[in-house]
């Protein structure tokens, strides 16, 4: 008998134990405490988060002394509305996925904004809604999402460098 093989399944399952590195570990530990920390480069003074252990533009190492606490409030500088479901998704579409420039940081953080999708806009002021302390894991999931503060929107001039 002749068989035509048109398809074969060869699943690949490989376990990894990933370690976040020292700088990111400090960031993740702070999240459990309900704090956001960034790294201030000793050369260019810019605050980057999550910390990487090096300044991405100066290429010099950072260390724990360079850690600074960043506000958990900020401005939506860019966003999109996610309408499609995908594997591992934790909330039901549609929802707002945004680039949020936290006060005191020089790069935006990516997270969700809990707002009706037709109310989302660039310049909106938002604040982190933290998970209760007992439920916080060392992950950005320690912040459930960001919620609008009701403050007046930031002017485009104030954040356009980041959008």
């Amino acid at each position: 008998m002749n068989y035509a093989v048109t398809r074969m399944l060869a699943p690949v399952r490989l376990p990894f134990v990933v370690t976040p590195g020292e700088a990111l570990s400090r960031f993740l530990s702070a999240l459990v405490e309900g704090r956001l920390i960034g790294e201030r480069c000793s050369e260019c003074s810019k605050v980057v988060l999550p910390p990487r252990g090096a300044c991405p533009t100066c290429g010099i190492a950072t260390n724990p002394r360079d850690n600074v606490t960043v506000s958990d409030g900020g401005t939506v500088v860019m966003f999109c509305i996610v309408n499609i479901p995908f594997e591992g998704q934790t909330i039901k579409p549609p929802y707002v996925y945004a680039s949020i420039l936290l006060d005191g940081a020089d790069v935006p953080l990516l997270h969700l904004v809990e707002v009706p999708v037709d109310k989302a806009r660039m310049g909106m002021r938002v604040r982190a809604e933290w998970a209760p302390p007992t439920e916080r894991k060392p992950s950005l999931e320690a912040i459930r999402w960001f919620v609008p503060t009701g403050e007046p929107d930031a002017s485009y001039e104030a954040y356009k460098e980041y959008a």
């Binding site: 591992g88 934790t90 996925y97 660039m122």
Partner: peptide, 25 residues
């Protein structure tokens, strides 16, 4: 991936905010 919640899938989710910002700009 641990530490990073799955918020968005694929390249489209990454680039869509840029497109909105370009339209504005």
């Amino acid at each position: 991936y641990p530490f990073q919640p799955p918020l968005v899938a694929g390249a489209g989710g990454f680039f869509a905010p840029l497109i909105r910002a370009y339209m504005r700009r």
